[in-house]
Design a binder for these strands. Structure first.
Lengths: 148, 148
DNA sequence: ACTTGAAGCTATAGTGACTATAGGTTGTAG
DNA sequence: CTACAACCTATAGTCACTATAGCTTCAAGT
């Protein structure tokens, strides 16, 4: 049996990137801002990640995909590291973020309606248009979008 | 009749900010990046804006509120400055932006569903939760959100 | 053993669209 | 004439990366 020189779960940064779908540069960035702990290094000073890093980075990736801010993720990670952790706080972060997402959706729907209106004004051919889109943008008074 | 020292439509930057709802710093920024032309200056080197500036800044504000990128606005302004302008191009920019907004809405709705699911897992009391939100984030396999 | 080339390293600057700060000057009302 | 708000420039900071330059290390092939 050959000596186990490289454990299956000890991987360089490129492999970690491939496994988690997070870019190499982004991984180094997460380390820099303290989201991902500093890993061991090879003799030649290259990063070597273990199973714990893979899991932690997967957590971060999933949370980022869901739109959580890095600051929120930092808190969530801290909570998950705490043994008898405060579930309330995690719930609050999650609920707060859900509210933000819903607000953003509402705002975008309002924009969508206004943009659709503007876009159709000009679709009737060159005759009516000199140019209706430009005019719609210039003339706020005629705007049905009142969020602002 | 008193001499018309200050025309009603020649205003300092603060008044322009108030009229358009754009912050003073942002106005200077727009000038810096070439969206808003450099205005006349007072003897003491302070900016003095005329009616044209008010209108142009209102256009920019409206377009930004609608989520157009500064780069798109630059193009739209160029088009609106052209006499026999290319309405097609304005229409394309507008339609492209509408598509972006719709894509963004779709993505956010997917996030919303997943977040709502995660948030409810934990709402049944402390018993079931150690902590379900953290677990949901850690365990991507159980995730119903498949955009990523 | 040696070469080559991909993958890794650090440090720094750039992105978009502002926002904030420091430290100075001007305009105007009392 | 004195306060003081409003203005000025220049520079740095925000967020979450992304890109670049100029190196070193690793692993596979000859």
């Amino acid at each position: 049996m050959r000596p186990v020189k490289v454990l299956e779960h000890v991987v360089p940064i490129g492999a970690l990137a491939e496994r988690t779908g997070v870019k190499v540069e982004t991984i180094r960035y997460y380390e820099q801002v303290g989201l991902l702990p500093e890993p061991e290094r090879s003799e030649g000073n290259q990063r070597r990640y273990g199973r714990a890093h893979v899991e932690r980075l997967a957590f971060i990736k999933h949370a980022r995909d869901l739109g959580f801010a890095v600051e929120s993720i930092r808190t969530l990670l801290r909570l998950s590291d705490t043994p008898g952790m405060a579930c309330d706080e995690a719930h609050a972060i999650s609920a707060g973020h859900l509210k933000e997402v819903r607000d953003k959706i509402a705002r975008l729907r309002s924009l969508e309606a206004e943009l659709a209106r503007i876009a159709t004004v000009c679709s009737g051919g060159v005759a009516a248009c000199d140019c209706a889109i430009i005019e719609a943008l210039a003339d706020h008074a005629r705007c049905e979008h009142h969020n602002h």
